[in-house]
Design a protein around this nucleic acid. Structure first.
Lengths: 149, 149
DNA sequence: ATGTATGCAAACGGTTTGCACGGTC
DNA sequence: GACCGTGCAAACCGTTTGCATACAT
């Protein structure tokens, strides 16, 4: 999953750590590996539960700290959802999000036409833009089917 | 401010309350009035501080409950920010948001060309879309100037 | 050997909830 | 007078932090 193979990105992770003087620990590797193979956009709690199966002694604090560290290094992204909790993704390519109002699942989609569009002049006069992201909210197919049970 | 005059929207508020059997209280009126005249996108705490000047005995719980009620009735919108707190706006017209990564201020902008665009097919097959919102993040002019002090 | 990362536990901040009183209808 | 809304306080939940130990370098 993601824009590069998992192995390549784990190697990059080690390079970035060495470069920044960060230590390559068992916990950090497993947390990053978990996020690289995740297709949903897991919450901190979800990452914790998954990694815990391989490292039963891991604490949720370490998951919080590691995810924050990975985000600061630009290796993963944080998404703040309407539920009020943070979700993470390892996807680094240009993309947007579909969020279901019922099950709160997050799905990626791409929209190249939009990406190539020039924003209106008001944006330029506001300041310097660094990210341009669409969030489409609605109800996903599974929830629609579940509703008309 | 907003797509309708403040007085008109306060009258609508009373109609909607009567319709739904909700009581028109002093607190609810002042909270809604405050949001109608706000140009920033205030947090619950900010609304509380402002309304408190006119109703010194008001509690923050009431502000939370009233804002939730107004949102459920479709009279205002909640925005979940990256800071992890909720912000509210009374604007009901189609618009998008500029968010400064430094001061976290939220500014509205419109983009009619985008609004008229048909989303890619993947969106239709995902489910039913209800909202389509752009968030552009970056650094606003004031923060840029403050930086190069 | 040095110093950062971890795990534990406690604190934190925004938000929600249970309850008795007060105000609206 | 009936009942919903309010204010107070306490609970709640996701997240952050201080500290002593464990581990990577």
């Amino acid at each position: 999953m993601g824009c590069l193979a998992v192995d390549k990105r784990l190697a990059d992770f080690e390079d970035i750590c060495r470069e920044k003087g960060l230590k390559i620990t068992h916990q950090r590797l497993e947390i990053y590996r978990e996020l690289l193979s995740a297709t949903d956009h897991p919450s901190v709690e979800a990452v914790f539960q998954r990694v815990r199966q391989r490292i039963p002694t891991i604490s949720i604090d370490t998951v919080y700290r590691t995810l924050a560290m990975l985000e600061q290094s630009g290796m993963i992204h944080r998404i703040q959802t309407m539920e009020g909790l943070a979700r993470y993704e390892s996807e680094c390519g240009l993309h947007h999000h579909l969020i279901c109002n019922k099950c709160h699942e997050v799905v990626d989609f791409t929209w190249e036409l939009f990406d190539s569009l020039e924003p209106p002049p008001a944006v330029k006069s506001w300041g310097v833009s660094q990210g341009k992201n669409i969030v489409i909210t609605g109800v996903c197919q599974q929830c629609l089917e579940r509703e008309q049970k």
